[in-house]
Design a protein around this nucleic acid. Sequence first.
DNA 1: GCCAACGTTGGC
DNA 2: GCCAACGTTGGC
Length: 142
Amino acid sequence: MELQRWLFKQEPSAYSYSALEKEGKTVWDGVSNNLALKHLRTVCSGDTILFYHTGKEKQIVGIMKAVRVTTVEGGTTLVEVAPVMRLPKPVQLSQIKSDPALAQWELVRISRLSVMPVPPHVWARIAELAGLRSSDKAVQLL
DNA sequence: GCCAACGTTGGC
DNA sequence: GCCAACGTTGGC
């Protein structure tokens, strides 16, 4: 299956990108919303994931990768993620909201959704705003 | 601290 | 099955 891109939200005081860097990897749990769970179950090993900090920060801070996806008894999907890189320039929610190319994205439309897909045109724009270079490993997935 | 936009619960 | 009351999330 073709690799996809996602955005996961987390309150950094609960679990931040720094915490993930320290730990090296983690299982992304605590998702209870139905639509978010539906998205989470669609994540495949190897997919690219943007890490968004909610609360005071309201910005995308880094890129992760799904390193292992397992389905346990009862149908629960466990998505294990590892850090790839911090964004050279974090992308603020305010930037995203004011960008016509991004205004229809779930991040803007459905503020409570914590797991959402990142369509290719959104990824391209975010990569641009984040100052990612085409030589960056994460961008080569384009 | 408030509130909008949801989701959940339980009585009917 | 409907809906009022309540809880939660996350931006403002």
